[in-house]
Lab assay of single mutants.
Amino acid sequence: EDTPTSDDLEQFAKQFKQRRIKLGFTQADVGLALGTLYGNVFSQTTICRFEALQLSFKNMCKLKPLLNKWLEEADSS
């Protein structure tokens, strides 16, 4: 899998936040949902820092596919 560039991550974080708000989920909701879906719960702080691009590049890269999958799930339900 290609490592995203920081531009990709920035773009995704922006879109993710917009979609999340549009779908009516809080950052805490997302963190809990990730726990339900993938077995690891993320704190509201982590989601907040992802959206604000304040996590390390490595952590951003790790979270992106999970959040992307969550968006697909949320969109289809």
Rank of each mutant, 00 (worst) to 15 (best):
E1D: 12
D2G: 12
D2I: 13
D2C: 09
D2F: 08
T3D: 05
T3P: 06
T3M: 15
T3Y: 12
T3N: 07
T3F: 08
T3C: 13
P4C: 15
P4F: 15
T5W: 05
T5H: 10
T5N: 14
S6E: 11
S6F: 14
S6G: 11
S6I: 13
S6Y: 15
S6Q: 15
S6V: 15
D7K: 14
D7H: 05
D8E: 15
D8P: 05
D8N: 14
D8L: 07
D8H: 11
D8A: 12
D8W: 04
E10I: 10
E10G: 06
E10K: 15
E10S: 12
Q11E: 11
Q11Y: 12
F12G: 03
F12S: 02
F12R: 04
A13I: 09
A13K: 02
A13D: 00
A13Y: 01
A13V: 11
K14T: 09
K14Q: 15
K14C: 08
Q15Y: 15
Q15F: 07
Q15K: 13
Q15A: 08
F16V: 02
F16G: 01
F16L: 03
F16Y: 01
F16H: 00
K17C: 04
K17A: 09
K17V: 05
K17M: 07
Q18P: 00
Q18D: 10
Q18F: 07
Q18I: 06
Q18S: 12
Q18N: 05
R19F: 04
R19S: 07
R19E: 09
R19N: 07
R19Q: 09
R20N: 00
R20F: 00
R20H: 00
R20I: 01
R20K: 00
I21F: 04
I21W: 03
K22G: 08
K22N: 09
L23K: 05
L23C: 05
L23S: 05
G24W: 01
G24N: 04
G24T: 00
G24H: 03
G24P: 01
G24V: 01
G24M: 01
F25N: 02
F25I: 09
F25Q: 04
T26K: 04
T26V: 01
Q27T: 14
Q27A: 10
Q27C: 14
A28N: 12
A28R: 10
A28G: 09
A28V: 06
D29P: 02
D29N: 06
D29H: 06
D29I: 03
D29Y: 06
D29R: 05
V30S: 00
V30C: 07
V30R: 00
V30F: 03
V30T: 03
G31N: 04
G31V: 09
L32R: 11
A33Y: 05
A33N: 03
A33G: 05
A33R: 09
A33C: 07
L34F: 01
L34W: 00
L34A: 02
L34G: 00
L34Y: 00
G35W: 06
G35A: 12
G35Q: 14
T36A: 12
T36I: 07
L37Y: 08
L37W: 07
L37V: 11
L37G: 05
Y38S: 12
Y38K: 06
Y38E: 07
Y38F: 11
Y38G: 10
G39C: 03
G39H: 07
G39Y: 03
G39I: 01
G39T: 05
G39V: 00
G39K: 06
N40F: 07
N40A: 11
N40C: 14
V41N: 13
V41E: 14
V41Y: 09
V41P: 11
V41C: 14
V41T: 13
V41G: 13
F42M: 12
F42H: 08
F42L: 14
F42I: 11
S43T: 13
S43H: 13
S43A: 06
S43D: 15
S43W: 03
Q44T: 12
T45V: 10
T45S: 12
T45M: 08
T45N: 10
T46M: 07
T46E: 11
T46H: 06
T46I: 09
I47G: 00
I47M: 03
C48F: 07
C48R: 13
C48G: 13
C48K: 15
C48A: 15
C48D: 14
C48E: 15
R49I: 00
R49Q: 14
R49E: 14
F50D: 01
F50N: 00
E51Y: 00
E51M: 00
E51K: 02
E51I: 03
A52P: 01
A52G: 10
L53R: 12
L53Y: 13
Q54A: 08
L55M: 14
L55C: 05
L55Y: 05
L55I: 04
L55Q: 03
L55R: 03
S56N: 08
S56V: 00
S56E: 08
S56H: 05
S56Q: 04
F57W: 07
F57D: 09
F57Y: 14
K58Q: 14
K58I: 08
K58D: 10
K58H: 03
K58F: 07
N59M: 14
N59Y: 09
N59Q: 13
N59T: 11
N59C: 11
M60K: 00
M60Y: 02
M60N: 03
M60D: 00
C61Q: 09
C61M: 10
C61T: 07
C61A: 09
C61V: 11
K62P: 00
K62A: 11
K62S: 11
L63I: 08
L63K: 01
L63E: 01
L63G: 01
K64I: 06
K64D: 00
K64M: 10
P65M: 08
L66E: 02
L66R: 06
L66C: 06
L66F: 11
L67V: 03
N68S: 15
N68D: 07
N68E: 15
K69S: 08
K69C: 04
K69T: 12
K69G: 13
W70D: 04
W70T: 00
W70A: 03
L71V: 10
L71W: 03
E72W: 07
E72V: 13
E73Y: 15
E73I: 12
E73V: 10
A74L: 10
A74F: 08
A74V: 14
A74M: 10
A74T: 12
D75E: 15
D75S: 14
D75I: 10
S76M: 12
S76T: 12
S76I: 08
S76R: 14
S76P: 12
S76N: 13
S76V: 13
S77H: 12
S77L: 12
S77C: 07
S77R: 14
